[in-house]
């Protein structure tokens, strides 16, 4: 305090120029942020604009950035179309089941890898991380052939059935979820579970009563990740399913709403918007968890 009082006369001018610099930096930041926000938000905004137009207005080629006769007919049509609702239903059921399967596999595995040192545990943890780096575009051809072979061999129909995706999607979600859960579990103080063990709790009880509640933020982040990845997956369903009643939203919209060369853009944009809605809604309400999951991959572990 005293030094501040003594130095008062000297540095004030310097401080003044610094705060002026900062004000300018802030103004420039806002200016450029507005430019980038326009770039980032143009496609979603344009989706909304087009979804509110009738086919007549779209083909009249009036100002594309403005709606002259707003109508909800695209929404009404899609939401009363059994086909579209079927896509939505398929996507929902697959994503929800995949989230549960992912958690059932990831949580116990992460618990074991974070707390029990066993032969090969370090290698397995590294292996899990490496698996996360293997892209879907490397595996879709062998998986397709594998499914065909198993189908011929056992007589169980696997290709062109939505439920096969429930087995395939965990390869995309489990490695990352396990990886970030290892990070969250490892950050829990050892004293906590030691105290529980001394009190006579079993491993299962420590997991359910201590690890899961304490690492709940991580669990939510992992759940969001698993859901959004399953919801957005495009390549696997495109390869493994073809019949209209087996399709998920991304594939359904891109294949059925585009009929030959006729593009019904009002409906396509409405469908895309409705398909983007669940992840966007989750993001709007759970943004902090979403971002925590996003950054956890590189900052945890």
């Amino acid at each position: 305090m005293s030094t501040m009082a003594i130095d008062k006369a000297g540095p004030t001018r310097k401080l003044g120029s610094m705060s002026r610099d900062r004000a300018w930096a802030l103004r420039w930041s806002y200016f450029f942020l507005v430019l980038f926000a326009i770039f980032f938000l143009t496609p979603p905004v344009y989706m909304v604009i087009t979804s509110l137009k009738s086919s007549a207005e779209i083909s009249a080629a009036t100002n594309p950035w403005w709606v002259f006769h707003p109508t909800l007919s695209n929404y009404v049509e899609l939401l009363s179309s059994n086909q579209f609702l079927r896509f939505f239903w398929n996507s929902s059921i697959i994503s929800i089941v995949v989230v549960f399967v992912t958690m059932l596999i990831s949580i116990p595995a992460a618990f074991a890898l974070a707390r029990m040192k066993f032969w090969g545990s370090a290698t397995l943890a590294t292996g899990v991380f490496l698996t996360y780096l293997i892209p879907d575009s490397l595996l879709f051809i062998p998986l397709f052939k594998m499914l065909a072979v198993i189908q011929d061999f056992t007589g169980i129909t696997l290709l062109n059935r939505w439920y096969v995706l429930v087995f395939i999607y965990p390869t995309l979600t489990v490695p990352f979820c396990t990886w970030i859960m290892i990070g969250y579990f490892a950050s829990i103080p050892k004293e906590l579970d030691e105290a529980a063990i001394i009190d006579g709790a079993s491993w299962l009880q420590t997991l359910l009563r201590i690890f899961i509640p304490v690492a709940l933020p991580g669990l939510i982040a992992a759940t969001i990740f698993a859901f959004t990845v399953s919801w957005a997956q495009f390549l696997y369903p495109l390869v493994f399913t073809t019949s209209v009643d087996q399709l998920v939203l991304p594939v359904g919209i891109t294949t059925t709403l585009i009929k030959g060369d006729v593009f019904n853009w009002g409906q396509i944009m409405t469908g895309a918007l409705l398909g983007a809605a669940p992840p966007l809604i989750i993001y709007a309400f759970l943004m902090d968890y979403y971002i925590a999951g996003l950054t956890a991959g590189a900052t945890k572990g």
């Binding site: 496609p43 979603p44 959004t228 495009f234 594939v251 944009m269 895309a272 993001y283």
Partner: peptide, 13 residues
């Protein structure tokens, strides 16, 4: 927002 929208959907836009 661009990262949150499923890429198949935003690419249609």
């Amino acid at each position: 927002v661009p990262w949150v929208i499923p890429p198949a959907m935003s690419t249609l836009a």
